[in-house]
C-alpha cells in the first residue's frame, strides 16, 4: 500500500513541476459574443481581405477543411489578409472542448464563439445565401463579398482571396 501512495505523491509533485511549462503554451484567446457583439467584424472598411469561417468542433467537414485555412492564414499573414474563426459550439463547452481543441493548433487568426440562439435573425445578416449549414465562409473586402456554404479546398480559398486583392 505504501509504494503506490508514494508513487502517487511523486506523480503529483512531477505534475506540479510540469505545470509552469504548460503556461508557455500560447494562451487561446477566444471571445464569446452574441451577434450584436460580432457584427462589426462583418463591416470593416479597410483594404484587408477578411475570411470569416463558421465552424464547430463537432462538425466533421469543418475540421477537414481547417488545416487548409490555417495553412493559408500562415502563408498570407501580414499581407492584408485576416482570418476570423467563429465557433458555433455551445458556450458551455468552451473550456472543455473548444479551447483544448484550439490549443493544439497554430495559425495567425482571431477566434470567436458566437453564442446567439436567434439564428433565423442573424444568418441572413451574414449572407442571404446561407441556409445555416456549416462549414460556411464569408470572404470580404470593404464592399466586395463572397459567400460559400460547404467545404472549401486550399485552391478555392486562395482563388477567392486573390480575386479580392
Amino acid at each position: 500500500m505504501r509504494l503506490p501512495l508514494s508513487a502517487l505523491i511523486m506523480g503529483l509533485a512531477l505534475l506540479a513541476l510540469a505545470t509552469p511549462s504548460l503556461a508557455t503554451v500560447p494562451e487561446v484567446r477566444i471571445k464569446v459574443v452574441d451577434f450584436e457583439g460580432f457584427k462589426k467584424e462583418l463591416e470593416a472598411q479597410d483594404d484587408t481581405v477578411r475570411i470569416i469561417n463558421f465552424w464547430a468542433t463537432w462538425c466533421l467537414p469543418c475540421l477537414k477543411e481547417l488545416p487548409d485555412f490555417e495553412r493559408t492564414a500562415r502563408e498570407r499573414a501580414g499581407n492584408r489578409v485576416a482570418f476570423i474563426f467563429v465557433s458555433l459550439d455551445n458556450a458551455e463547452q468552451l473550456d472543455t472542448r473548444v479551447i483544448p481543441f484550439l490549443r493544439e493548433r497554430e495559425a495567425p487568426a482571431r477566434h470567436f464563439l458566437l453564442d446567439d440562439p436567434g439564428a433565423n435573425r442573424w444568418i441572413p445578416l451574414v449572407s442571404g445565401e446561407w441556409s445555416g449549414a456549416i462549414p460556411a465562409t464569408l470572404i470580404y473586402r470593404s464592399g466586395k463579398r463572397k459567400f460559400h456554404e460547404g467545404m472549401m479546398s486550399y485552391d478555392e480559398l486562395n482563388a477567392q482571396i486573390n480575386g479580392m486583392l
Binding site: W58, C59, L60, P61, L88, A119, N120, I123, P124, W130, S131, G132, A133, I134, P135, E149, G150
Partner: peptide, 12 residues
C-alpha cells in the same frame, strides 16, 4: 413566416 433559417450540420 413560411421560411426560416437555423444553424445545422451540413448533409454528408
Amino acid at each position: 413566416p413560411s421560411f426560416t433559417r437555423a444553424i445545422g450540420c451540413s448533409i454528408k
